[in-house]
Design a binder for these strands. Structure first.
Lengths: 337, 337
DNA sequence: ATCCGTCTTGTTACCGGTCACATGCACCAG
DNA sequence: CTGGTGCATGTGACCGGTAACAAGACGGAT
């Protein structure tokens, strides 16, 4: 048995130093079987002395569990993907699991390529993130590992999907505006083809209906997720319904455009018109003048919950269906007292 | 030899179907050794028929090469880290390498924990990203795998670091302002403790000096990376040097603040005062009124080059030293004709 | 003294590939 | 007819762990 200088320390080295066999060393280090406490301790201190770290690959090979999962993004790493990735990474690393990053770029060929790569690497599961809530086709059928969809739904209802609760978000935003005494409320948001936009709009209408009210300035509701649309739509709304006293914007960017437009129209925020955004994109919401109240969709929580459900599925207890994650109100000056 | 139904296909299954031994099948599939072309073909078609995909773990174990690398971010996944990650992922996946994602969160305990995890997983190399150019202590000494620092320098000059070329960026921005005929140029940027801010400022001064000019409005140069500072500093500059005809801003956010301030002061952009930003953060630069000219620091290229250098180091040809990546001018309306 | 059970440790097969080497066969020259 | 050469393929070791089983030591009961 030659002395291997410099190379990595193997369990055989630890066993040799402790004067036991590799099998015994393995048991000692993993706290399994029954060993004399003294022996266990001797192995432990030998391992520590040598700085032994088990080779995760060698461990994974016979067990079939690699303690890795793949994270496939559909749209690169956009604004919404980031916090989800962070949350997922956080939730998984807490379970001692490492994350393979794959940038799908909205290209299903790339996606399938990554899928194969991940399976080759024996991942224990896969998280697929999207940038829109809208449903997407499942990654593949009959995969040997569980898949969880985060921020996007799988069109197969038997799959597990975790998405932000847009209906709830629309509700709390609108309720907040009512709470501060506004009654002539307009809504400006993104394209109607986005499920998220439709859900927020309809839940806003519901809340108002329960209070015996309706949305005002209906001429400009669905448009784009841009500042420019925020400015433009605000101008239209204020012309068609000059007594509007609050605008619920579908994104912070739109709200930012709205503040600019209102300032140019000589309306004060929040005194004349209260404003609430959506997304809590700090760079827009917190630095706007005045700072924007908004709905934080809790995206990192979406990622964390997706991770938790994936871990659960890996442990044999899948959680099928669409799971919604509620957001929360962030109140700043634009609806403040 | 039992028939394994449903389980993954192993090379032994392929070999059995082709009527050869596993060794022969391995050679056939990897195009090695000398085999009868007919045999090779028979094995290939057997593999295809069974949908055989080699187990990457089993492959990595004896070879010592896992074809994976770790990506450790120091500050989560901030604005600047994202494009670098994208570039790195892109550059590595081209080399058939998968990327482990680790969110260091500016916490050296976490960082060291991830480092150990990555080494346990037998990564072939590590990329460390930062959010500032400024030097940071090396990840660790005497690691068994190469490390490349991206967007941040290692304080050990023998390490390989890839950073954006701030001096070049400052130069092209300033030169552009001179080219469009401006001579009374101010500079508003972030905190002086940022190396990037200092480099851009001093290269701007150099370019002006060569033209026999100096920066104007020196009372407000270093401040913060915020819109608020952009507004505030612009007001100060325009008061102290009312004939200022261009402002080079250290970030697009600052430039955005500057456009607002100038509008409120009744100065037209670019007619009275030309504006150029830095970063090409589309969401600010492209949607500002007017759209901002800016310097694109080419961060995804920084990531890609870091990946290339890492691959080279893995192949035994390290590229020590600090490598700078030039940015490029993006001309929009704020300096346009 | 023998047998059994328990506690502790060693031995060995195995995961799924790859690679060095052994084997066997055909062909050719002497 | 024999021996060497070269090509095609099989065999077995190995990577670094884990786990099932084997084996040995010791003490107590009969």
């Amino acid at each position: 048995m030659s002395v291997r200088r410099g190379g990595p320390v193997r369990i055989a080295d630890v066993a040799a130093l402790a004067g036991v066999s590799t099998g015994t060393a393995s048991k000692a280090l993993n706290g399994l079987g029954q060993l004399r406490p003294e022996t266990r301790e001797r192995v432990r201190s030998a391992a520590e002395q040598l700085g032994f770290r088990p080779n995760a690959l060698a461990r994974a090979l016979p067990s079939g569990r690699s303690y890795t999962v793949g994270l496939i993004t559909t749209d690169s790493f956009g604004r919404f993907t980031i916090p989800i990735m962070m949350g997922a990474e956080d939730g998984l690393s807490a379970g001692q699991i490492s994350v393979f990053l794959c940038d799908g770029r909205e290209d299903s060929i790339r996606e399938q390529h990554y899928l194969r790569t991940l399976l080759d690497r024996q991942v224990d599961g896969i998280i697929v993130t999207g940038r829109r809530r809208d449903a997407r086709p499942p990654l593949a059928e009959g995969l040997p590992v569980p898949v969880v969809y985060a921020m996007t739904e799988s069109s197969n209802p038997a799959d597990c999907s975790v998405v932000p609760d847009d209906a709830h978000g629309g509700r709390i935003a609108t309720t907040h505006l009512l709470d501060i005494g506004r009654t002539r409320i307009a809504h400006i948001t993104g394209p109607e083809r986005f499920l998220g936009a439709r859900l927020r709009a309809s839940s806003a209408e519901e809340v108002l209906a329960q209070a015996g009210l309706r949305l005002v300035g209906t001429g400009a509701r669905f448009g784009e997720w841009s500042e420019a649309w925020g400015r433009q739509a605000t101008a239209i709304v204020m012309r068609s319904a000059p007594d509007t006293d609050a605008i619920f914007c579908g994104s912070d960017q739109i709200a930012r455009g709205a503040t600019d437009a209102l300032r140019e129209l000589g309306r004060r925020v929040p005194d004349d018109v209260a404003l609430i955004g959506y997304d809590n994109w700090e760079i827009f919401a917190a630095t706007s003048r005045p700072a924007l109240s908004t709905v934080d969709p809790n995206l990192s929580e979406v990622g964390r919950i997706a991770a938790r459900h994936l871990l659960s599925a890996i442990d044999g207890a899948p959680v099928p269906g669409v799971h919604t994650v509620p957001g929360m109100l962030v109140i700043r000056a634009s609806t403040g007292s």
